[in-house]
Nucleic acid binder design. Sequence first.
DNA 1: CTGAAAGCGCTTACAG
DNA 2: CTGAAAGCGCTTACAG
Lengths: 344, 344
Amino acid sequence: MSKGREIFRRVTANDVARLAGTSQSAVSRVFTPGASVSAETREKVMAAAGQLGYRPNAIARSLITRRSRIVAVAMAYLNNQFYPDVLEALSDRLQAHGYQILLFTADRHAAADPVLEQVMRYQVDAIVLASTSLSSAFARECRQAGVPVVMFNRTTDDPGLLSVTGDNERGGHTIARFLLAGGHRRPAFIAGLEASSTNRDRERGFTRGLAEAGLATPLRAVGHYSFEGAAEATRQLLRRANRPDAIFCANDHMAIACMDVARHEFGLSVPEDLSVIGFDDVGPARWAGYDLTSYSQPLLPMVEATVTLLMECMEDPSRPMRGVVLEGQLVVRGSARRPAGWAG
Amino acid sequence: MSKGREIFRRVTANDVARLAGTSQSAVSRVFTPGASVSAETREKVMAAAGQLGYRPNAIARSLITRRSRIVAVAMAYLNNQFYPDVLEALSDRLQAHGYQILLFTADRHAAADPVLEQVMRYQVDAIVLASTSLSSAFARECRQAGVPVVMFNRTTDDPGLLSVTGDNERGGHTIARFLLAGGHRRPAFIAGLEASSTNRDRERGFTRGLAEAGLATPLRAVGHYSFEGAAEATRQLLRRANRPDAIFCANDHMAIACMDVARHEFGLSVPEDLSVIGFDDVGPARWAGYDLTSYSQPLLPMVEATVTLLMECMEDPSRPMRGVVLEGQLVVRGSARRPAGWAG
DNA sequence: CTGAAAGCGCTTACAG
DNA sequence: CTGAAAGCGCTTACAG
């Protein structure tokens, strides 16, 4: 401990009690909502606390209450605007409930992570796993330690885990129908991470929609949810002799890369020569330079559902787990040819 | 406390000690890097810990060491890609030093904030104030409580506070010279938040650069660092009879809105009819659809400097404060007319 | 309503 | 190297 630290001795409840002429318990009660204190005591304590600049120590409080009021959030891919938006909304809602976020930026590919082990040591009350490849095994371990885990934008086969997602399969299916109604005959798909449930569900719905109209499994390339990956995937698809007339990208972030490559490297017009559709409906999809048709993820309802699940589960950990699926909708803009009478 | 919670009794160092046949102190030492334990003891303890799934309680540790190894980060404007990028880099670097981030999404306009008061209760070891209007008074209060504060991407007149910024004034000045060299005669400026130091410094440099060439103070509109605000500011500027031939936007996020409005609402070609320049050099500036000329902020060095300052300051709080200014550079792309022989 | 006291799960002198 | 013990700053029965 360096010399400099000593000069800042923290103000404790004891210091306040001494100045206010009460017991330390009384000070604690004044700062505990719902505890019984007389108006007189409260006043004396508040005056003393104000004078000393007292701030209750949440760490000490957590130790004894065994609730830290901290939620760990694991995220990656923050350059996909969907995630910062989620983070901001989640933080706002959690703060409104009196919870703080301990942020954990996960390695994008690791199944386990030493830092998350570290985070667990802070006795977090719950965990939100968003956009990570962290194994379900880890999530299950947390559950066993009594810590609720919500998989955000990701499902799992494990029935013991909570999850909140958009209706990915229906989204993919809707996009297939939209493209077919628009007269496209050679649709292609750019996949995100193959192991992710979002990619699997979106692709499944898309392929099923095409199959229902008698089309074969679409052309396909993998973009790994990254900008550069999607650009390269687009090049692969557009270099083909019989190139696709539409590309559905597993998210907007990749769809933007796809449009850039189509227009600026291949000189194609969107949507005249090529229709492009994304998924998420993030901010940049609305930018006039892209005007991207996209299937929306209902971000605010998803965040709200996540917070609700967490609160319920912290209240009663024995409550049965469930997955929540929230409906999005196709947001039709200018990046894909519009069918004449499209009605959803 | 609900019934369900009880079934998950936490495993403590005492449980491990009992199983391992050692004292609780020994268990603690095994998990304290640098503490002296025999190989034999270490082995017994590790075996028992593994068997029980023991994880040291960081909350209890923090209480006694008086160091939480948590850094509070206050942010807003996460839809400006600069900030998620900062957050991700900051989190990575801090995690590498064994620190975690307690995220605090600030109200964009409040000078003080009840939630930040809450965050302070967690005995954070340091605070990074990025992109907020939180008052310097608050920052000073934290300093007095012995908690180092770094203003990120923001300066202050207060000599008692640390800050890390890009060279905003030089950036604005460079942009002015670049536009002048490109033959522009009616440059305009779209301001961010007028109260922010970044806006003030960028604008000052820009205005000075124009003045040195004999130009008057440029036309000006305020975009408040928001997309819609910048769109409206652009409309104001372009509706004028004698419209500008170049617009410098105080950040890239606004420059993108500006380009969208210029092209899609006013039918202008960029850069033929109008040059647009931004600041930050965020990801979307590189997207082919915008190809935005921008003055870069050296994000990684800024984050690295922030972490270094924090570490130094936590090591020795009496160390004199200093501001760090890191050089960026003009990244010339296609959104602004290029001077024939531009050499920086 | 109020205070004294126990205890949350650790770290760290201290003595051996 | 090791253990017993004090103590970090709180909350919360318990008794008054």
